[in-house]
């Protein structure tokens, strides 16, 4: 299998920087690019009965929105430049899921933006970039 790089992209400015960097890297080394978008999800949060009923519908909507609004535009742009681009759209804890993708896809390099959509909780519990730097099975590049 040829060399591949996975980049975490969430549609933010920081994510765009990471994507640009990873695309440059892929082009220079002739590697394929995997654009990963993770929808934050925990199976342990609490839902009301109505939320449970609507969950499947919401999930379908969320996946569609992520596909069309986040992934499709960048894939179209990068495909023009002749890069071999694939996408991964998953639900889960962001850092854990990126690691899982890196393992599943057998990639050699992980690229992410430093901040992404930061929130109060990331300030308290640490960021995705921080967790990946500590736990990733492959080299990680954090793009400012």
């Amino acid at each position: 299998m040829s060399k591949r790089i996975v980049v975490g992209y969430d549609g933010s400015e920081s994510g765009a920087n990471a994507l640009e960097f990873a695309a440059g890297l892929a082009k220079a080394s002739g590697a394929g690019l995997v654009i990963a978008h993770v929808l934050e999800w925990s199976p342990y949060t609490f839902l009301t009965p109505t939320e449970i009923e609507e969950r499947h519908k919401r999930r379908t909507e969320e996946l569609q929105r992520a596909e069309t609004a986040v992934l499709a535009p960048v894939v179209a742009k990068l495909a023009e430049s002749g890069l071999e681009v694939t996408t991964e759209l998953r639900y889960g804890h962001i850092a854990e899921t990126l690691i899982k993708i890196a393992e599943d896809e057998g990639v050699e390099h992980l690229v992410i933006g430093r901040t992404g959509h930061s929130s109060l909780s990331t300030r308290i519990f640490g960021s995705v970039a921080g967790s990946l730097a500590q736990a990733a099975p492959v080299p990680v590049t954090i793009v400012p």
Partner: peptide
């Protein structure tokens, strides 16, 4: 639970919601 079904209601969530009732 099939990881591909992540994002759907988990068994834990179903249990927790029913219990809170």
């Amino acid at each position: 639970s099939d990881p591909n079904d992540a994002g759907e209601v988990s068994h834990f969530q179903a249990l927790a919601t029913a219990l809170s009732g």
